[in-house]
Amino acid sequence: MQQVRTPHVVVVMGVAGTGKTTVGPLLAARLGVPYAEGDDFHPPANIAKMSAGVPLTDEDRWPWLDAIGAWAQGRAGLGGVVSSSALKRAYRDRLRASAPGIVFVHLTGDRKLIEDRMAHRQGHFMPTALLDSQFATLQPLEPDEAGVAVDVSGSPEKITARAMDALRDLERSSAQPSQ
């Protein structure tokens, strides 16, 4: 099996409940790089807002994205995996501005499955009531963005294996000479 060369940083993205916090560490372990939990970069005011069921504004997100970008920049050339919803193109552009070479793994899936997973997780501040706003905000990866979409059905191990396969395919296709 061909090994995936680690890009500067892999950002595991998607709406709440897709499994970023579960798949991210598994992917980091498979790649042999450190993992950073994106939620840990939120200032307390953001967590309080989301805990109260209030969606974040772009102004709320900028410092959070900048903190993730600074971590990613510090991992340039070393590799790493970090979770971040990165729902809008503008958010991903901001991350790329801090750390060029980022590759996104967009965890996608059926809304019902995601809502069910959110309803059954414990100890997380994000209520299922915010899932609608997450889907409304989501702008999927565009063709010019380095990244892959990975379905979240199945076990975390299967999702991680799919992500590894997709990253391998992406690496192969980007290594092909342009014609």
Rank of each mutant, 00 (worst) to 15 (best):
A175C: 13
T18C: 13
G80C: 06
A76V: 06
M118Q: 03
S178N: 08
W64T: 00
H8R: 11
N46A: 07
F135N: 10
A76W: 12
I47D: 07
R61V: 10
A70P: 11
E59V: 12
R172I: 10
A52P: 04
H42L: 09
G69A: 08
A175I: 11
A48C: 13
S173I: 09
D60W: 09
S98T: 07
Q134E: 06
Q122F: 05
V103D: 09
K49C: 05
A72T: 00
I102E: 00
G123T: 00
R121A: 08
E59R: 14
D116A: 14
P63W: 00
E145W: 03
I102D: 02
G32C: 08
T6E: 07
L56E: 15
G19A: 14
Q139A: 07
A161L: 06
R75P: 05
K112M: 13
G147V: 03
A72C: 09
H120M: 12
S178D: 15
G123K: 01
T137A: 05
L65N: 00
D110K: 02
D58R: 10
A86K: 00
R162E: 08
P7T: 08
Q176W: 09
M50P: 03
I114P: 12
L78Q: 14
M50H: 04
A36Q: 10
D66C: 12
L130K: 08
L138H: 03
M164K: 01
L131M: 13
T128N: 06
R121K: 06
H120N: 10
V103I: 06
V10S: 04
I114K: 05
A161D: 07
A70G: 07
A149F: 03
V4A: 11
T6W: 05
A76I: 08
G80W: 01
A76Q: 15
T160H: 04
D151I: 06
S85A: 15
G123Q: 01
S98N: 12
D169N: 15
L65Y: 00
P177M: 15
S174Q: 13
H8Q: 14
L107G: 02
G79Y: 03
G123N: 04
M126A: 01
A161P: 05
A70W: 09
T128E: 12
P100G: 11
R92C: 01
R92W: 07
M126V: 02
A161E: 10
L130S: 11
A67D: 03
K20W: 02
A76G: 08
